[in-house]
Amino acid sequence: MADGVDIRDRDIGRPSVPWQEIARSEEFRRLESLRRRAMLVTLGIFLAVFGTFLVMSGYARPFMHKSVDGGLTVAYVWVLALTVVAWVLVWAYLRFAERLELRAQEFLRRGGYEEDR
């Protein structure tokens, strides 16, 4: 809030870090594509289970109302499964991101890229 200290990045394009050079390097592209792949896989699984769930909730209601055991319907089983899917996806992505971050740090160290402050 109004603390009189600027909090925005005013130094766009400061020449001290070769952003473009890094962005064009092969290792960086590899890191980026690894991340993109992890992102797409996670989002893909996510959209598949959640998207199908939403569409089925709208357009396959008799199926969703089917009983699995007494009052426990397909809809409830699916919703509980979605909770577990969310936990697993987040856990898996956290593990992946941890490893990617180590690689990224190694890459920055090797290239000697550091922002001078």
């Binding site: 870090v17 952003w19 890094i22 962005a23 960086f28 890191l31 980026e32 991340r35 971050e101 990224a104 740090q105 890459f107 920055l108 890229y113 550091e114 922002e115």
Partner: peptide, 8 residues
């Protein structure tokens, strides 16, 4: 891009 991937 560089920042959001490497944190630099």
């Amino acid at each position: 891009r560089v920042r959001s991937t490497t944190g630099l």
